[in-house]
Design a protein around this nucleic acid. Structure first.
Lengths: 162, 162
DNA sequence: ATTGAAACTTGATCGTT
DNA sequence: AACGATCAAGTTTCAAT
């Protein structure tokens, strides 16, 4: 990770593109060289070409954040996490270390589906005879402007080159 | 958004690629048709080709979550947000509606830079003569396994086609 | 590791249905 | 809107340094 890499990364951040051609043109390094560097960065998983799907834009404009207190010892986190992930309507599962044990994210199209999700939670709780607690926060996506200033000058040139 | 679009989106989610060629091959729809559909989906911003940079992998493996109580009326949120975003070391700013006013995300390489960030916070507070409160949570990225089950069967086929 | 040039792959376009 | 054929563009490879 040298100064040349950082220039490439900054260009990716501004162009929001990983095209060797465009990057090459922008910073005046031959595209075959850029290509070579990009390959290395990809191997290290520092960059990653992602095709992102916006479930909100696709019509699922209710986002549910469900905090879960699971009453399990920490060793079982992975198992419990997988169980939670398998619940119909749960899209993401985050293991947390703080007050709560898990945070679940759900994208749903309507109140009706929210009711269904809740009954799925009840079911899991009954089957497992736990006293897990599920606290749900619903967000209507139009009403929650999230402003993102990511990659601010590529994290100040990777905090002055580490 | 019909059944054909959903098939395409599901393929993108599994292949993690938006290549017309590959998608075409996978679901046996001519690539020119896939191309046509992809263009529509792009216009609607349902899909988005992103070149993601992983600041953690790039060496910034301290993540700081800073909750901010800002003492401003909600109309000023945008201005305050921009001020917060301009703080050296702050990479993302989220406006929140709940208990806190803002959540800031910082990616930093070392404790030393954390100290710097904190003094930047102090500076902002002094200059603006506010009694804003900054509460910082530090995460060492190795120690925080976050498990992601995103796009679970493309959100159950977009919750049964809306 | 860098590069210019060549080879090749694939995304984009076009005309037809 | 769907599609097969064609074209253009951009990525990848290669040989030399």
């Amino acid at each position: 990770m040298d100064e040349k890499d950082i220039r490439i990364l900054k260009t990716i951040a501004t162009l929001k593109s990983g095209s060797p051609d465009k990057i090459s043109e922008e910073i005046d390094i031959p595209k075959s060289t850029v290509h070579y560097r990009l390959e290395k960065l990809q191997e290290q998983e520092i960059i990653n070409d992602i095709f992102e799907i916006d479930l909100k834009k696709a019509g699922l404009n209710l986002t549910l954040i469900t905090e879960v207190w699971a009453e399990y010892k920490s060793e079982y986190h992975k198992q419990v996490g997988e169980k939670l992930a398998s619940i119909q309507g749960v899209n993401q599962v985050y293991f947390t270390l703080g007050d709560t044990d898990f945070v679940l994210i759900s994208h749903l199209p309507s109140r009706k589906m929210v009711e269904e999700l809740i009954s799925n939670f009840e079911e899991v709780r009954e089957v497992n005879r736990t006293s897990s607690k599920f606290v749900i926060t619903t967000i209507k996506n139009e009403a929650n402007p999230v402003n993102d200033y990511e990659y601010t000058e590529l994290a100040a040139a990777l905090s002055q080159n580490l």
